[in-house]
Each structure stands twice: as C-alpha cells, then as structure tokens.
Amino acid sequence: MKKEEKIIVGISVGDLNGIGPEIIIKTYEDPRSLELSTPVIFASGKVMQFFKNHFNSKINFFNIDSPEDVVHGKVNVVNVWREPVKIEFGKEDKKIGEYSIRSLEAATKALKEDKIDVLVTAPINKHNIQSDKFNFPGHTDYLAQALNGKSLMFMVCDGLRVGLLTDHVPLKDAADRINEALIEEKLDTVITSLKQDFGIRKPKIAVLGINPHAGDSGVIGSEDDDVLRPTLAKIRDQGHLVYGPYSADSFFGSNTFKNFDAIIASYHDQGLIPFKTISFGEGVNYTAGLSKVRTSPDHGTAYEIAGKGIADETSFKRAIYTAIQIYKNRKEYKYFSRNPLKKVSK
C-alpha cells in the first residue's frame, strides 16, 4: 500500500545510450535523497545493474514487478522488460528508442492509475522514438494526449518561468499557428498553473512579440498588431495582469524579465535560448496544464559524453524537487479552495 506521507516519484529511464541512467544513479547515490520521496524507476533490474557496474556506483536497486510493490526507503526498479539490452553509449539506436518508449508508457500508466504521484522523465531522442505506434515530437505532446490535457512547455528555474505559445514546430510555421484561440488557451494554462502550482495569487505575465521589435507598428510584419495585441487586451479586460507584446531582443538583457512571474515566448528558441543562457544545467522543464505533475531536466541525451561518468545531475535533481513541490502546492491549493475561510491572508 502507498503511504500518503511519502511522495512516490516515477522515473522513465530515457534513452539508454544517453546520460539518463547516469544522472538517475548520481541523484540517488546520496541516501538523503530518499528522505523526501520514494523513487520508482521504470526499466529493468538487469539494465540498471549494468549501469551501476559501469559507473562503479554503490547504489542498491530494489527490483519489483509492479509499482504497487514499492518499498519506501529503497530505489525501486520496476521490471518493464527482462531481456538483455545491448548498450552502446552515444549511438542513436531505433531499438533503444523502443525501450525508452516502453519505459515512458509504463510510467504514464502508473501515473494515470495513481500508483505513482509524479513523473520525472529522463531525456529521450526525439528521432529514434518515432514509429507507427508512437508519433509524437516528444514527451509533452504524448502526455497531453495520454492525460487528456492542454499542455504547455514551462521552463522554470527559481523565479524565472518561461512558457511557449508554440513549441516543437518548424519556425516557418510558428507565426501561422498563433491565433486568438491559441493565445487564450496558453495564457489560461499559464495563469492557472502559476496559481495552483506555484502559489502566486495574482500572477503578472509578459508576452514576447512574434516579429522582431514586435513588428515595429507593422513595418516588420502585422501579426503582433493584428493578432497578439488585441488578444492580450481582451485578456487584460478580464482582469488578468498580462502585458506585451515586448520586443524579445532586449527583454532579457535589460533584466525586464525580473518584473514578471512568467514570460511567454512566441516560439521555441525565442524563449529557450535566453532561459538556458541564464540557467543552463539548473533549469527544469515542467509540463503545465495536465491533471498530473511531470517534470524533466532542461537538457537532452548528451550522446557526446554518455558513458564517461561526467554528466551533471543538477538539473535532474531539480526536476525531482520541483515535481515534489508542485505536487504539494496543488494539494494545498485544492484544500484552501474547498476551505477558503481557513486561509490566512498574507
């Protein structure tokens, strides 16, 4: 039986030829990491033993057949498969991609069934996971469908939070996808997340322009004036503190971002380049808008250093701590939403 006082963190193992298993092992080599939560790794005992031996780790894994068999105080490994797996560090391998998806699907199933409390995903290779059965650009879109949510990629690091109107789409298509309905949907997701997941009662949000200099009054594109500005004005009229569009080129360098609880970028690199420049190695990718909590580190498989024992686990650790904190914040938000008189005004 699951103990309510101990948060169970499900972990999908990611690409086995990348650094995922290494950063998982490094995170849980410190026994103090088991004080906050109980980990459940979805992989196989054999493959995790291989990584333990390769990295000369003293970590002890506890093999179980189902997340229902979890033992607190142990680093649990659910045997999603039992056959041996050939590991070739740094190599993109279609078969390895299949194992990463098997791990993800098993972990997601456990999350949906409340057998784990939160999900933390190690990095996958977005190319070798593609198949007739799995046709998603990454974790975010898969989880949105699996959990019937409207997801938003939310990069967080301390007080810096960057969300995206469009995420893993080609740049040439990004502007065409930004319309009133999308902007309203994403801003609603951000506002809700800031309140229930981060405890911010009246969030203040900045939105970056679609075009250079936010269009320069139509000189460099009309999308900002025709689509973005009127939609943001409509959202402000509803009582939300939403501002912009701001010119993206100077927004972060001038430290203007520090005046807001979240920044919404129009497309992937507009938001993630400054975010990772400011916080690389310490940031967390959080999927806002879902009924369950999912986080991941802010980096990829890092094939170039896989197997060398030099991967930095900081971002993965932070992903775990962030998932735990958001889970607690959500429980508190739900409690005080049902019992408003018990909340003490700040």
Rank of each mutant, 00 (worst) to 15 (best):
D249H: 11
S279L: 00
G90M: 03
W81T: 06
L228G: 01
L160V: 10
K276S: 11
M153A: 13
S37D: 12
G309R: 08
H168M: 07
F257R: 05
F154C: 09
S12D: 14
V293Q: 01
Y246L: 11
T189W: 02
Y303Q: 08
L272W: 13
K234Y: 00
N148K: 15
G253S: 11
A319H: 08
S250C: 12
I264G: 02
F280C: 09
P67I: 05
L165Y: 04
E180T: 08
I273S: 12
G307M: 08
G283I: 06
R82I: 07
L165F: 07
T277L: 13
A265M: 08
L208E: 04
N259T: 04
K172P: 04
K94M: 13
K95T: 15
L111R: 06
S345V: 13
P21E: 06
Y327E: 15
E88L: 12
A122S: 14
N135A: 06
P84L: 02
E4N: 15
S279G: 01
D15Y: 10
Y28M: 04
V344R: 10
V227W: 02
T140A: 10
E180P: 00
L182E: 09
A233R: 03
A265G: 14
V13Y: 04
K6I: 09
E180I: 06
G149W: 00
T314N: 12
E68F: 09
K276Y: 10
Q130D: 03
G281L: 11
H268G: 08
V9A: 13
K186N: 07
P230A: 05
I220L: 15
K115T: 00
I210L: 11
S279R: 14
S296G: 06
I116H: 00
Y303M: 07
A265C: 02
G281E: 11
D261C: 02
G97T: 13
K317H: 13
T256D: 10
Y267C: 01
F62R: 13
V293W: 03
T231M: 04
L272K: 13
A144F: 01
Y321V: 05
S315N: 07
Y333K: 02
K317M: 14
V156R: 01
V70W: 03
H213E: 11
G239V: 00
P170A: 15
I101M: 03
D261K: 02
K346A: 15
I320S: 14
I200L: 04
V169D: 05
P137D: 09
V190P: 00
V118N: 10
D226V: 05
I59G: 01
F50G: 03
N148L: 03
N79F: 02
P21C: 04
A206Y: 01
S254P: 00
T287M: 11
N179I: 00
A107H: 04
V242P: 03
N329I: 03
E88A: 12
I96M: 02
K3V: 04
D298H: 09
Y335K: 14
V293H: 01
I7N: 07
A43E: 10
P170K: 10
I273K: 10
